[in-house]
Computed example of a mutant assay.
Amino acid sequence: MSGNNEVQARKAIQNISPYTPGKPIWELQSELGISRIIKLASNENPLGPSPKALEAIMCSLPDIHRYPDSSTTSLRQAIAEKLNMKPQQMIISNGGDELITLVSEAFLEPGDEIIVPAPSFSEYEFGALLMGANVVNVPLGESYAFDIDAIVNAVTDRTKLLCICSPNNPTGTYLSQSVLHHLLDVLPKHILVLFDAAYSQYATAADYTNGLEFVRAGYPIVVLQTFSKIYGLAGLRVGYGAAPESIIQQILKVKEPFNVNALAQAAASAALHDTEHLHLSLQVNSEGKKQLYRSFRELQLPFVESMSNFVLVNLGTHAKFIYEQLLSKGIIVRFGGIWNLPGHIRVSVGKDVENSAFIHELNEILHFLHLRM
């Protein structure tokens, strides 16, 4: 019997590359043989999960032999009440990533086009390519601001979806309320806007919007939120989308049953009301960003002031070497090459001691490079 086969994968996936996550702690521990690893690569909450979420998980453990609520009724109701919306305007997903794929599956046909400002989160392209759609990248403007004129000019009769991440990953820049309103008004009404507000809780600009006001107003927009960031539940994979009810009904047609596990549902419901954890997380993030900003200024390293929980910093031609040296010291950051920013790294904001360790090692590496030059 021959071991060869002629099984052919779909042509649509030939251009898809698997997502490359930040290096996990366990992997670097194994490679270096050290226990102390500082991970500042995946924009996780350095304080850990909401204590109320942990308590809810413990209370839910005896029932994990039962299937979870496929309709996520309690969680949708809790989110809707908090946001002054209807449960029918909500869909709960297995992290924000699943929602992006569901939107693609529900609305994209082969040959359709999606517009994605670049650089940004790579999963928008994944969903489009999976469905045989074409990705139109529109470069961000000066200082990584959104170029609204370029976005509008990129629209064709085949444009079906526009993906906006605000605050944007990896730049930390954002779209103001007035500009988003203008954009929604001038776009053809057959274009759906996927507004990824995964980092919205960190945004402090007075003119920032999380997009929910436009859902309430009935615009063709899906607002993505996640419990992976400020709520500290990345390991449970739970996110949600808010959209007009007619759009939600279409997305529900492609959602798998039982897509969000019971522990994730219970934890998210509890974390949603843990205001103490939320406020402390915001405080740590604000202080941590100031700490990083001061150090980058002292080192004369250009960086982007961020509305999120990470900072994009320009290290120049030695960025890859510096990234690798930091890894060798047990510090994981994100190399910018994956966004076609080979001179940059993205640093997640950690606790004071974690930020200090990163700054110390960065200083040492830069001093070494200076001596060599």
Rank of each mutant, 00 (worst) to 15 (best):
L161P: 02
L161I: 03
L162Q: 01
C163G: 04
I164N: 02
I164L: 15
C165R: 04
N168V: 10
N169Q: 05
N169I: 05
N169P: 00
P170R: 02
P170F: 01
G172H: 04
T173K: 11
T173L: 10
Y174L: 06
Y174M: 10
L175R: 02
L175N: 00
S176E: 13
Q177K: 15
S178L: 12
S178R: 15
S178E: 15
V179Y: 05
V179T: 12
V179R: 15
V179Q: 14
V179I: 11
L180S: 09
L180R: 08
H181N: 15
H182I: 01
D185N: 14
D185P: 03
D185L: 13
L187W: 08
L187P: 04
P188G: 12
P188E: 10
P188T: 09
I191W: 04
I191A: 01
V193G: 03
V193A: 05
L194M: 08
L194E: 06
F195N: 02
A197Q: 10
A197F: 05
Y199I: 02
Q201N: 14
Y202H: 09
A203M: 11
T204W: 08
A205T: 10
A206I: 14
D207A: 07
D207I: 12
D207C: 09
Y208R: 09
Y208I: 04
T209P: 07
N210M: 08
N210E: 14
G211R: 04
G211I: 01
G211A: 06
E213W: 07
F214P: 03
F214G: 03
R216S: 14
R216T: 13
R216F: 05
G218D: 06
Y219T: 01
I221C: 00
I221M: 01
I221E: 00
V222K: 06
V223H: 11
L224C: 12
Q225Y: 13
Q225R: 15
T226V: 08
F227H: 11
K229E: 15
K229I: 12
I230H: 10
I230Y: 08
I230N: 07
I230C: 08
Y231K: 13
G232F: 08
G232N: 10
A234I: 14
A234C: 13
G235I: 11
R237Y: 12
V238F: 07
G239I: 11
G239T: 02
G239W: 03
G241V: 06
A242K: 03
A242F: 01
A242V: 00
A243S: 00
A243H: 00
A243Q: 00
P244L: 00
P244N: 00
